[in-house]
Design a protein around this nucleic acid. Sequence first.
DNA 1: AAAGATGATTATAT
DNA 2: ATATAATCATCTTT
Length: 357
Amino acid sequence: MKPVIYAHLAEKPCLSIRGAQEEDPPDPQLMRLDNMLLAEGVSGPEKGGGSAAAAAAAAAAGGAADNSIEHSDYRAKLTQIRQIYHTELEKYEQACNEFTTHVMNLLREQSRTRPISPKEIERMVGIIHRKFSSIQMQLKQSTCEAVMILRSRFLDARRKRRNFSKQATEILNEYFYSHLSNPYPSEEAKEELAKKCSITVSQVSNWFGNKRIRYKKNIGKFQEEANLYAAKTAVTAAHAAAAAVQNSQTNSPTTPNSGSSGSFNLPNSGDIGFLSMQSLNGDSYQGAQVGANVQSQVDTLRHVISQTAGYSDALAVNTMYSPHGLSANGGWQDAMTPSSVISPTEGPGSVHSDTSN
DNA sequence: AAAGATGATTATAT
DNA sequence: ATATAATCATCTTT
């Protein structure tokens, strides 16, 4: 309800024009207004055809494709403001000139009947100019205000928020839940995710920030989702794991993934699963080079195959990478409210692996 | 329309 | 610098 973005503009509604004696040094307030108008492209050089401007915007934006559409409205309004500003300014200038010449003529006529010192004329002109420049000032100020309002209306991202595509959230969730024990993507990972989802890196960061905090805040609410994504990646993970196990010569345990591969209805589910699991062996393997892609699936596997002991043993790697403050006792989600740890979800077998959308 | 979900911003801490 | 936590403003669902 209260736009605070342009608060700095409202602090000085009108400066003292009355005492226009010492205005020789360029008024800082006026300077600010001028600078801003210039920066905003209001008082700058006329941008020619709209095409050139659009091209420039597109080139500058680079990755933002939908931006141009969203900004077109903004730009239209901005040019409107610009035009008003310029016509008004011209009008004032013209009026000022007319007025001064008029006064000059008057004085000249009077000078026939009485002597008028040039000093006096100068003074007169100065007064007139000051008067008009104060009007100009007001024009500039209101223009600035209009621009700022426009800005807050259109450029504040919160006002024009669009949800990410289903596909993008899919990818992000996939990453999140398959790195659940350490959901802090590196800079490169973020870049890759951003590219895959066609969003910006900072959007990826925002997403993970939000996700982490919201997941931690109410794990129970996200259980279903977690299981779903765990199951989703488990298909490939199982394959990879199986291949890895076989590769390492040892005969794989009896029918490796027969039990859980078909219908991932996790028994009593990961409730006890990852939380306690990761407490036991704060994982986050990173350094070992053996199966770089296997590690990313460890978390996933923990969800799905908490019983097939052979696997988790084989995959349990303890390298403790500790990105931030990964304290020994827990992962990134320690220190929680006791209530949220309970995870009161029952009805164990109600997890379907359908891709509902 | 109310409630929930979600992306972005802000304040604060490390 | 980056993460968390709270909050905002909008979108989506009910």
